[in-house]
Design a protein around this nucleic acid. Structure first.
Lengths: 338, 338
DNA sequence: AGCCCCCTCGCAAGCGCTTGCACAATGTTC
DNA sequence: GAACATTGTGCAAGCGCTTGCGAGGGGGCT
């Protein structure tokens, strides 16, 4: 009941024709197609994805592997990807590594192997070599977003340039004492982003004839609270207080703004603050930032995947794409006083 | 290659036995099972979900329908659900209604119909009658989380009681002028939560002999910014300024704290603030709040679903469950001064 | 008129599993 | 030791689609 046979019967054609009419694969005359589509619609018939997948080898589903879900960047990328996928008739199934050990292993050793997906999007993941090779061994298109994955084409902003741009904005305003709040050494080892952003900062400082190593630096964990704590330290020492702070993420920058307030410092009068990300709260806090556009990154990732699926090119083009970003100047940055 | 036949051959049994050994359905001697499992493991064989689904009618996959993804509550519920599902060997596929019109329709008219899921979790959704009936027409277990769905068993906190508890906390501290920041009339029509929280507030006030209608009220949109704007108004009028504010969500409460600071008011000295949710930022802002536990709600939803799938009870028990919550007292509330 | 090509469509063989049924080999009971 | 459960396994028929191949028919060409 409700299967393809019924549609075929009512439309007066074979199941083969129904399949072709509904999927768009193979030639069907416009008249026949219309009849089939009408019957299917009136029966509320939708092709069973399992039967279809089994027969065709295509699942119309892509997997998204993420390290967390409840962080702005990740959920935004997913949101963009999901939207693009729905439009293309694809589903999105989620593989959240947050759980840690066991769950993480089983995602790679079990879940991704059951042929439920045609492709996978890996978001801001630092994977072990073994995990990457398992991913590639699936023989399916893979694209990374937001973090470099060896051997996988990846979409990401050029963190070095972005950080340079942010730092240059402060320099152009006339600041010469610019503190930095970034990642700590430990996390830098497995995740390059904080290191790259620091590099961009260093480059800009040196290009301006300033010595980055002599500037105040504190590590945060990319949360508001981490930024607050780092900023409290960095801004707390009267003697060496910078006139501007470049935080490696908007959340840390917001923490910095809050810390400044609590220290009785006015932003931007006493201290300018700039971040990176274009977080949804940036505007509310009047935060100057270099925006990136995670939703669009998700959409772009899907675009790439669809293209790759269409040409069934199995080989991974390793051309990584560099994504757009843009400086949004708000009230948190101004020329230094005096 | 790599199919069940190869495993069967190498283990010296039939494919039927392999299927039974790997799935746990049907009796297989321990020795045989071990042999099969070993062979499967060494070949890296994992049952193809499509073939399995087609043959068995079970997909080992559940759908999660959400209105947004990038909000704390939703992503937390999903995170909890995902974790529980992975443990049970299930996948989670995401249906995000955020797009609005077209995408929303196609989720109900197309995507959910392709038999890709065994059950669905509907998170904080206000669905039309048509949408609910389509959901039920799937003939699959459905559970709602965080919002009432007619005819669907739902997990949610008792918003009235939670709001009463929050208000009573302020009353117990001695406050008698307590403002409220809640939802606006329009949104109340399709989403009951703001109205329920207001009801709880009204009840507590009346029980204390106070007239809620004479208290300051402003509508916010459940964001930090909305809370800020509402609080700016509510706290801005010198004459009628309340000594305490009950915000219907933590994000709005945080906005209230920020607005108070900007108005030169000290929290809790000049004004106490309490929220609802247990948002991850509450602790950072020292916000007193009534916590709910969305991750656990996600896990609980999965538990319910699994139970229902196990007993293949098709009929929906309409017993809705009321979830735990708890008052977390922090620095944002104190007795009124003088 | 005859030939060929192209377009449309049906036939039927799978896709890779699951499971009802049958059957053999043990174990249990009196 | 006969009669009957019980347990472990294999056989084979699907699950509901997709698609290679081939048949039929209409039109354009020489």
């Amino acid at each position: 009941m409700g299967g393809i046979d019924e549609v075929a019967r009512l439309a007066g054609v074979s199941t083969a024709t129904v399949s072709r009419a509904l999927s768009g694969n193979g030639a069907v005359s416009p008249a026949t197609r219309m009849r089939v589509v009408d019957v299917a619609h009136s029966l509320g018939y939708v092709v069973s994805s399992n039967a279809s997948s089994l027969a065709s080898g295509r699942t119309k589903n892509v997997g998204a592997v993420v390290p967390f879900l409840n962080r702005w960047f990740f959920s935004s990328v997913i949101e963009g990807a999901e939207r693009a996928l729905l439009r293309a008739g694809y589903d999105l199934t989620l593989y959240n590594l947050a759980g840690g050990g066991d769950e993480r292993r089983s995602v790679f050793e079990h879940f991704l192997l059951r042929k439920r997906v045609d492709a996978v999007i890996a978001i801001s993941l630092e994977l072990t070599e073994d995990e990457v090779s398992r991913l590639l061994a699936l023989g399916k298109p893979v694209v990374g977003v937001g973090g470099p994955l060896a051997g996988v084409p990846t979409l990401m902003i050029d963190d070095v340039r972005v950080a340079r741009l942010a730092t240059e904005h402060l320099l152009a305003l006339g600041h010469t004492r610019i503190g930095h709040i970034g990642g700590n050494e430990a996390s830098d080892l497995d995740f390059h982003m904080p290191a790259s952003r620091r590099t961009g900062y260093d480059e800009a400082m040196r290009a301006a004839g300033l010595a980055p190593e002599s500037m105040p630096f504190h590590a945060g964990d990319f949360t508001i609270q981490g930024g607050y704590r780092a900023a409290a330290q960095l801004l707390g020492e009267q003697s060496s207080r910078p006139t501007a702070v470049f935080a490696a993420s908007d959340e840390m920058a917001i923490g910095t703004i809050l810390a400044a307030r609590d220290l009785g410092l006015s932003v931007p009068h006493d201290v300018s603050v700039i971040g990176i990300d274009g977080h949804e709260l940036a505007e509310f806090f009047g935060l100057t930032t270099v925006e990136q556009f995670p939703e669009q990154q998700g959409e772009r990732a899907v675009e790439l995947l669809m293209q790759r699926l269409a040409t069934d090119a199995v080989e991974q083009p390793s051309t990584s794409e560099s994504l757009p970003f843009s400086l949004a100047v708000r009230a948190s940055t101004a020329p230094p006083v005096g």
